[in-house]
């Protein structure tokens, strides 16, 4: 699919970053406001799909040289690793911990291990969606 729609491409470039920022924001907000790993991951992959529509597979592959299958395994590693990590602290599998910290720039922030788990979910969702779409797209 080779398109030469200049307007679409230009808009896509801008909108791509907007969606990505929105996705990241929604991902981090997940513990307090609507959002989280699933939605964040889906939005991110939605942004990449937009790029795919605007340009073609090869160009996007050049821009984002990511093997999404690795992303899946990385995400699973994060998720299981967070869950298994609790065993090291002698608490049952999957026990999360959190605390509040005073960070520069952010002020009082709470840091969760649940966030790490959600990061795993986020990565897996991106990896899965993009693997599916890329694979089907490539099989012309």
């Amino acid at each position: 699919m080779k398109t030469n729609d200049v307007i679409f491409q230009t808009v896509a470039k801008v909108v791509f970053f907007m969606i990505i920022f929105f996705a990241v924001r929604i991902f981090f907000a997940g513990h307090y406001y609507p959002g989280g790993g699933f939605v964040g991951g889906l939005l991110t992959s939605g942004a990449i799909v937009l790029l795919l529509l605007a340009f073609d597979l090869k160009t996007v592959k050049k821009i984002l040289p990511v093997d999404y299958k690795w992303l899946i395994s990385l995400g699973l590693l994060f998720a299981t690793g967070t869950a298994a990590g609790s065993v090291l602290f002698n608490v049952p599998f999957f026990t999360h911990a959190y605390d509040y910290f005073q960070l520069p720039l952010f002020g009082k922030t709470s840091l969760h291990t649940a966030m790490l788990f959600d990061l795993g979910v986020y990565l897996v969702v991106i990896g899965v969606t993009m693997t599916i779409i890329q694979t089907i797209g490539e099989s012309e």
Binding site: H31, Y32, Y33, P34, G36, G37, A79, A83, F94, F117
Partner: peptide, 19 residues
């Protein structure tokens, strides 16, 4: 330590499901 119940259920209370 969260406020969004749905997300907390997903990643914490019922984390196994999500995993």
């Amino acid at each position: 330590g969260g406020e969004n119940m749905v997300n907390v259920i997903l990643v914490d209370f019922r984390g196994f499901d999500t995993l």
